[in-house]
């Protein structure tokens, strides 16, 4: 099976690793081969973080340039930073809530505005789905459920190799019990939004 390749990007502390673990375990329980490459350590102090994942036969989790099937971007600038992974068949699901680098006011390059980010991505990808996942998470009950909004969005994308039920089961296996209701709500919101906007 040619692997389905997912590039997840964002900022340290947004719950990227948890999201990839939920997907990966769901794949494993369906007997699909799966590998994930994570970044730990220094980059977690507000730096950029990316996780790469292949579901299907593969040795390394690292995705060749232009080979991502799905970009799941938890932050707009980090979506754009992953543009080298995008090709004409790539779906991008992006959270529109920006996190400005702490030194942006002294940075040589400014934070691009949202329409520029969208245009750049759209010119290279098949489809870019944008949602304010921060706001959707707050509505679901907690900002920290933002990663589950994004996960819901990913599951809705055409070609995503895992079904909703197996992802939900994996959420139960990987999230604290008391957080499940809010996280499920957040997941459903993301899923619904992406289904309607595909």
């Amino acid at each position: 099976m040619h692997p389905y390749q997912i590039y997840i990007s964002g900022v340290g502390g947004q719950g990227i690793i948890k999201t990839s673990v939920i997907m990966g375990e769901a794949a494993m329980k369906k007997n699909l081969p799966v590998v994930v490459g994570e970044i730990h350590g220094m980059s977690q102090r507000g730096g950029e973080v990316s996780t790469q994942m292949k579901i299907g036969t593969s040795h390394s989790p690292l995705i060749e340039e232009s080979n991502a099937d799905l970009i799941l971007a938890f932050e707009p600038l980090e979506a754009l930073r992953g543009v080298n992974m995008v090709n004409k068949d790539t779906h991008v699901v992006m959270n529109t809530a920006p996190i400005y680098p702490f030194n942006i006011s002294q940075s040589e390059h400014s934070y691009p505005d949202s329409s520029t980010i969208l245009n750049e991505l759209q010119s290279h990808a098949k489809k870019v789905i944008t949602m304010d996942a921060d706001e959707m998470a707050k509505k679901a009950g907690h900002i920290l459920s933002m990663n589950m909004v994004m996960l819901g969005g990913a599951v809705a994308v055409t070609g995503f190799p895992l079904d909703k039920e197996s992802i939900i089961k994996s959420m139960y296996d990987n999230l604290p019990e008391r957080s499940i209701p809010i996280n499920l709500k957040a997941f459903e919101e993301g899923f619904k939004f992406c289904m309607e906007n595909l």
Partner: peptide, 21 residues
């Protein structure tokens, strides 16, 4: 071996260095 040219942004992106919390 593989001829695909990776997409690039038409401008430079600001960096996001890690920092004190």
């Amino acid at each position: 071996i593989a001829a695909i040219k990776a997409a690039k942004t038409s401008f430079e992106l600001p960096k996001r260095p890690p920092t004190l919390c």
